[in-house]
Amino acid sequence: MCVEIMLNAANLAFIAFARQFDAAEGQIYAFFIMTLAAAEAAVGLAIVIALFRLRESTDVDELNLMKW
């Protein structure tokens, strides 16, 4: 969820500067970031659910499956 806040902060900066420099490009970038956030949330939450099913835990430190 903090990732969402960070993406939103970037979005807000993009839109504020788009307003300041009278450029529509900033709003387009914000639009792309929003799409990216949707994709990220979907995949990330799917990974969390899959790992929870596997390990019965959401603690990131316990999830060392890919450790070599």
């Binding site: 792309f32 799409t35 990216l36 949707a38 994709a39 979907a42 995949v43 799917a46 990974i47 659910i49």
Partner: peptide, 20 residues
């Protein structure tokens, strides 16, 4: 870029379905 982001959404959707 718009087409690329739509492709990204499709990939994310397929990935989420596969993971679930």
């Amino acid at each position: 870029a718009f087409e690329a982001i739509s492709l990204l959404l499709v990939v994310a959707m397929v990935g989420a379905v596969l993971l679930a």
